[in-house]
Design a protein around this nucleic acid. Structure first.
Lengths: 197, 197
DNA sequence: CTAGGTACTAGACAGTGTCTAGCATGCAGT
DNA sequence: ACTGCATGCTAGACACTGTCTAGTACCTAG
């Protein structure tokens, strides 16, 4: 058995799974459609039925990445917390974990596909954005933030996590330093002085 | 004249200059040694005398990028200012400008070359790090920061700029929003409440 | 039972990075 | 001045890649 080709449409999922592994191991440059096909036991042309392009594969990876990232944020932010501060911190660290643990994927997700991104990607990215906004929005209910600041704080939060993860991934900062960056940002943002200027 | 090959060692500089242009136009994936050679009017093997690898070319680009980035920060931070706050803001916005205007280059500089980076790159990156640290250090003299916080604030500052630029480059935030992120961070950091937690 | 679409195979092509051998130029040592 | 040699280049080769194409097996709708 099983010397027949994978067939039956699950090839797409197989390719994506293996692509994520390779992405983690060798980065985006070391991702080859032909190699993925070989590992899946299909011919080199087979992936074309599911991904017209190498770019299409990367797009699908990015979309998946956004969905998984959103799930991580959603899950961390909805767990019971003793305080809003701890909830915000826990969510930030979860996002940091994901970003550092999937550095190459983050690179695919956040590199220069400004206007040309597919609609599916934008939808997934929007879900992540909403998840982040949800955590910050909860801060309004908790009395920590003003409604008018939600967007600015969401972006500040996102940029900090993203930047800290990039520093770690490139070896320019340690994990402990990234934790400190995120903790400091949470503390500063909660100090409320963002209204002061 | 000039149908003779470029010769005489300036090929390296010519290739690097053109590589920066291509990098800006098509990103890191659209960077081909053979194409660069063609544009420089030399044979496809010529670049090998200066860059053993494609990776070596990217390393050289990264090194150059760190040096130029460091210069930008140094220059912005040493200009006369009416206050430390305006000095810190101006420097931050200069760094943001550079990061957004050279997004693909930043990608090359900050992607997963953890331990395997060349010594030259690390030296250039160190110069950038020192430049940033210098601006923050000046805040100690100005009475804005405590000496013990210089490293944390430097990293927070770097991560924020980096993150904000990445959001803009990927189309996930506007330039105005990135400015706001950076301004907010400067304001928060100067509020001194980083000591509070 | 048949028609058509889907998922694949297999061959081809251009382009790429990398390796190799060879040629020219200019410089150092005698 | 001649020789030796390193440097910077040319040119050919190889394996690999993404992409396109024609063809084949299968599943499913009619």
């Amino acid at each position: 058995m099983s010397d027949r080709p994978v067939h039956h449409g699950n090839l797409r999922a197989v390719l994506l799974d293996q692509a994520e592994v390779r992405l983690r191991e060798r980065g985006v440059a070391g991702l080859s459609l032909r190699e993925l096909a070989r590992e899946a036991g299909v011919s080199h042309g087979a992936p074309r039925s599911h991904f017209i392009d190498r770019a299409a594969l990367l797009d699908a990876l990015a979309e998946r990445g956004f969905v998984r990232f959103a799930e991580v944020v959603e899950q961390a932010s909805t767990r019971r917390s003793t305080s809003y501060r701890s909830r915000l911190r826990r969510t930030a660290h979860a996002a940091l974990d994901f970003s550092i643990g999937n550095a190459a994927l983050l690179e695919v997700m956040f590199t220069g596909k400004v206007g040309e991104a597919s609609e599916a990607i934008e939808r997934a990215a929007g879900r992540l954005f909403l998840a982040v906004r949800g955590v910050i929005d909860a801060g309004v209910a908790a009395g920590a933030f003003e409604e008018a600041d939600v967007e600015r704080i969401s972006l500040l939060w996102s940029a900090t996590v993203q930047g800290a993860a990039t520093l770690v991934a490139s070896g320019r900062a340690t994990r402990a330093q990234a934790d400190a960056i995120v903790d400091d940002t949470v503390a500063l943002v909660l100090s409320g002085s963002i209204r002061a200027l």
